[in-house]
Nucleic acid binder design. Structure first.
Lengths: 329, 329
DNA sequence: GTGAAAGCGCTAACAT
DNA sequence: ATGTTAGCGCTTTCAC
């Protein structure tokens, strides 16, 4: 592996000059610059990023902490983050926290130890409650969930509003016995609040509300329970795509017709939503925008660590499809 | 940030002793070891991995290059790789190549520059044809696709065999006019070969075979074309989950009943396969095993760079579901 | 403009 | 068993 020394030798200059040229510093004559560039080319020299990172105390790596890449919402965000990072010459460490604050802590620390330039984090419940407790001291942007206890760049979607809108949509279409299944993560609680607000506004009461994990099986079990214990339920509101998938399985297994016998709605516009019949009414989260914004903010923060923290709230979009069309009275 | 110096000072020893303790080297008295550990604890000291990596010429980072994390096959593999890496104390850089050899090259080089311990790669078509041309010289394991021109640790599934089996399944169930849609990636060509072998064995000829991109829209377009140009087609064989999704959309749009009017099969046991009606007959790829094996092999290779390369072929599993049940004659 | 030299935080010879 | 020392490859003063 050629080092900066080899380049210096070949170009007949000192290593500091090579460094200057490669870092696009001023005060280098055109002649010397050309010679150095030539040598770099001929030797196919690439600066050792580890050495550079050690000395310069900065790097072109980012950390991305998601709860689980297998959740299509996070898959999409991860992909888009990687794209934006690539455009800016950064690579990204992908870390799955599994909603586990131990793992989150570990990875956060690991990222610091590896001297990443910044971290993009979807915080666990615990971390969101007391962010100061994490005691992180590096450029960080939080997404998907807001945090308490510390001012930090944050990107959210309007969970309450969008849930309100989605619940409203059900109500306006004649559904009367609407149960809800929400994930026990920060977004789940917010969406539940929006849901309940819409219900309260028209004096409806949910036959059942279940809080559960962000997993298909959990959604399946919850829906099963609802449909058995509250057979009059005519619609199920779910707070994310995995729970929605599970709920749909349960509905199908019980032979209930969507939307005639039961309406079904949720979040995230993932591929299967339009593959099933009828296709699913959901709130689409702008994953691309979230990611783009996250990378933008982290870059800004890296450049200017003192910039006052920003909070960006993006809008979810209601996509009405067959799973929630108007009830025949 | 505390450095090894601070620990040494606090413990009243030299930095080399601290280094020894932290690297679990022998020849340290219990007394000193305890004092060092104590100091580490009190200072909440964490070794700077960048410095360690620079000096020791090794790191606890891995590179994982997939063509697109959004493809559920790669999502699953990525997740499992990350899990295994985590267990072994490694972090992983996630890189999307988009089947683009330029991007692949860039990332490979980037990983080298960042001094990763090894790379787990799903090579592009180009790279698979002439792997030696990549000129990589670091621990690497290739998965999903075999490569020519160089001996390298490789993890595959039996694409030809499983495709043969899947095609055979269609044939045995009375399908006679079987078209195929294959992705123009190495696995696509292999699966096509298995498909054609099964067809040839019983003297059948595919009404149409289309090679296309690994995208839902591409599958949709291909299936549309097949169903319009070869209306007698009674089954479509697809080579992966995205194309299958697109094909299913086309079939639905044309109002054809699965499996009565058209059989439909493909690869990858992703979530929606059992969400749709009827559920999909597919070959399940053992993503967990692939990932586990990949991390195992890369660890072995890191420890012993001279070990002769291994090629592991895992078996895909035929999962028969409703989309391909026996035809009524 | 360019070079010499210090040093980022650590590991690994080499002394003792 | 422990300390001293020399770098890993680079950036960055500080001279000239």
């Amino acid at each position: 592996m050629n080092s900066i020394k080899d380049v210096a030798q070949k170009a007949g200059v000192s290593i500091s000059t090579v460094s200057r040229v490669l870092s696009n510093k001023p005060y280098v004559s055109d002649d010397v610059r050309d010679r150095v560039l030539q040598a770099v080319q001929e030797l196919d020299y690439r600066p050792n990023q580890v050495a550079r990172s050690l000395r310069a105390r900065q790097s072109t790596s980012l950390g991305l902490i998601v709860s689980d890449v297998c959740n299509p919402f996070f898959t999409d965000v991860s992909r888009a983050v990687e794209d934006c990072a690539y455009e800016k010459g950064y690579s990204v460490f992908l870390c799955n926290s599994d909603e586990n604050e131990k793992k989150e802590r570990f990875y956060l620390q690991e990222m610091i130890d590896k001297n990443v330039a910044g971290v993009i984090l979807s915080p666990t419940q615990k971390a969101s409650e007391n962010f100061a407790g994490l005691n992180v001291n590096l450029p960080i942007v939080v997404y998907d969930r807001s945090v308490k206890g510390m001012e930090v760049d944050t990107i959210l979607i309007d969970n309450r509003d969008s849930a309100f809108q989605l619940a409203n949509h059900l109500i306006e279409n004649g559904y009367k016995q609407i149960s809800g299944i929400f994930c026990n993560v920060p977004t789940g609680y917010e969406r539940r609040a929006g849901f309940e607000k819409a219900m309260a506004k028209v004096g409806l009461q949910a036959p059942q509300i279940i809080m559960t994990q962000t997993r298909i099986e959990a959604g399946y079990a919850a829906a099963k329970k609802i449909l058995e214990q509250s057979p009059l339920t005519d619609a199920i509101f779910t707070s994310d795509n995995l729970v929605l998938a599970g709920a749909m399985q349960a509905v199908n297994e019980l032979g209930l017709k969507i939307p005639d016998e039961i309406g079904l709605v949720g979040y995230d516009d993932v591929a299967w939503m339009t593959l099933v019949h009828p296709s699913m009414t959901i709130i689409r989260q702008p994953t691309d925008q979230i990611a783009r914004m996250a990378v933008d903010l982290i870059m800004q923060r890296i450049e200017n660590p003192k910039r006052p923290p920003l909070q960006v709230v993006l809008k979810g979009q209601l996509i009405v499809r067959g799973s929630s069309i108007r009830r025949v009275e």
